[in-house]
Design a protein around this nucleic acid. Structure first.
Lengths: 339, 339
DNA sequence: CTGAAAGCGCTTACAG
DNA sequence: CTGAAAGCGCTTACAG
């Protein structure tokens, strides 16, 4: 296929039709793969398309079809924390992107934090830029998904929302993951099991803490809790506090790998050996979990798959299908050396 | 502003005009902020816009203006390595996104790897979806930027391209960064300084190795080189090889923090203390560099700023300005405890 | 300062 | 199976 010279006018359907000696309508049909076109004329049009290097103008097409073939992924979080060390968002992006590519859709990425940018997202969406939106929100009660849904826009969110919106979501089985971690600790003979919980304004934080509590309750042990915010730094601080509160603890379940890493660091500084004195279990199974010393036992959540699933559900929704209000992906324990 | 009920027809310029008692043309003018509109009629239109919750249809607008207010960011790399532990791409995305937001542009993210997806990017771009494209390519000679540029599309790439395209690029000062690292090692009395270089099919890898060599040459020392691919795993392997090749080495400059981390791990396993026996310097200054043991001395490159700068240059280019063929951002040494 | 009109590049009933 | 025609929702010369 030869492309027009730089700066040269881009060919239109009209020029393709002319060159092929057919009408604009027919040219449009073959470009869109309509089956009701005579083989020889299809050939002629295809040849014209190739000769001219014709590519349909997306704006014109969207204007009439009312569809854009683009899907937005909204990442709501303070910019600083979105990326950094945490592969959460990148992995979501990767998964969503894979799925969308396969469906021939484009991914429009929007990072928002302030209320002002919420407005931006709404405007953008209403202006017909995209056929649907995925929201990977991290905090508290985010009104955006609900607002969008109420406007009639297909929306799927990542992570069980707080409060009760009826927006469909995709999530990992946080509670059971936490239970698996605690059960493992119990099974390996640990008696005083603390937790470094995630932020309690996020369901991921809440659900993992609930799992910890539930599993401990089932075995009649008491909870020892400190709260972090998923970062390594908060893991360090929480571990120190835990050690001060209960010097006799012999295990910690941290609600993120980053916090688990921080905890191991604090433990080392306090002269405790892992896992001999204190066993540590994380949550996520990030790439680096394999490389901590000792390698981290952790609960694996399938983040890329979460992104993929979110995209898949949204595509179905946008296509008019009815989808499950919740899709929960399993988590699993991966045992290494820290516990 | 009140929004239409769910599913209700979206208001058009026509309806705004009718409600305000003016022509479509005039309504369009006030929506687009034209100054040549009488104040009282501007008021009336604005009120109608608010009452109706009018938002311009982007496709219609693009069709006539030939502009889209969207910019593509193409990430070319095998999906697996794009994300993972390495905050490079996420940081580029963050920087670019910030800059684009500020300019009221949207970011369309495209992840590509195969040649097939190159085609996809070309089609997408020609179809008028975006006003320009940023390419953050990681490997070798990527023909995409050149192809796009030849088609008359504004393009800026991240990282000095291999070969000689004339596509404008934005990069960190890799060579000088490496020199800073080696000089520091020299200044602190190290004599046998090895390097774990990055992949030699990327200019970042090449330039850092050149800097290492140049600085060593200036001080009459010989090079001790192993090649990695920027990952932690490759850092481990390279360090082991280096130790086998030259057991007497007393310092290593790794071309990425991830490789430096791997090197420290290999060193520890070999019974060498850092920095006492062997000093280690990394490159990047990733978040985790602060948390290694000992904390990593490294060369900081301003990745977010690279993303921001790339976006800024592209915006200028797309606006018709002539931009610098190369923009090189400074790197700096941050001394912690590993060297 | 404002409006009537043309036109951006497509798709899709509707006839035939 | 194919074409003439209408129309998607805007912007922008061109008149006045």
């Amino acid at each position: 296929m030869s492309l027009g010279a730089p700066g040269r006018e881009r060919p239109t359907l009209e020029s393709v039709a002319t060159r092929a000696g057919v009408s604009r309508a027919t040219a449009s049909r073959v470009v869109n793969g309509s089956p009701t076109v005579a083989p020889h004329i299809r050939e002629a049009v295809l040849r014209a398309v190739a000769d001219l290097g014709y590519v349909p103008n997306q704006a014109a097409r969207s204007l009439v079809t009312q569809r854009t073939n683009s899907i937005a992924l909204v990442l709501t979080e303070s910019a600083g924390r979105v990326f950094s060390d945490d592969p959460f968002f990148p992995s979501i992006v990767q998964g969503a992107s894979q799925e969308l590519d396969a469906a021939g859709k484009q991914l429009v990425l929007m990072m928002v934090n302030s209320g002002a940018s919420h407005e931006r997202v709404e405007q953008y969406t209403i202006s017909g830029h995209v056929d649907g939106v995925m929201v990977a929100s991290m905090h508290g009660v985010d009104p955006l998904p609900g607002t969008l849904a109420r406007m009639g826009i297909p929306v799927v969110v990542n992570g069980r929302p707080m409060g009760h919106t009826s927006v469909p979501y995709v999530d990992a089985d946080n509670e059971n993951g936490a239970r698996l971690a605690v059960r493992h600790l119990l099974d390996t003979g640990r008696r005083r099991i603390a937790t470094i919980a995630g932020p309690q304004d996020m369901t991921a934080g809440i659900d993992r803490l609930n799992g910890y509590r539930a599993e401990l309750r089932d075995s009649d042990r008491r909870s020892i809790i400190a709260i972090g915010d998923f970062t390594r730094q908060s893991g360090i601080a929480a571990m120190r506090q835990l050690l001060a509160d209960d010097p006799g603890l012999d295990a910690v379940f941290a609600a993120s790998d980053l916090m688990a890493d921080g905890a191991m660091r604090a433990l080392r500084q306090a002269g405790r050996r892992v896992p001999d004195d204190v066993a540590v279990v994380g949550f996520d199974d990030n790439e680096f979990a394999r490389y901590t010393e000792p390698p981290l036992t952790t609960v694996r959540q399938p983040i890329v798959d979460l992104g993929r699933t979110m995209a898949r559900q949204l595509l179905r929704l946008a296509a008019g299908e009815t989808i499950e209000p919740a899709t929960v992906l399993p988590t699993e324990l991966v045992v290494r050396e820290s516990a």
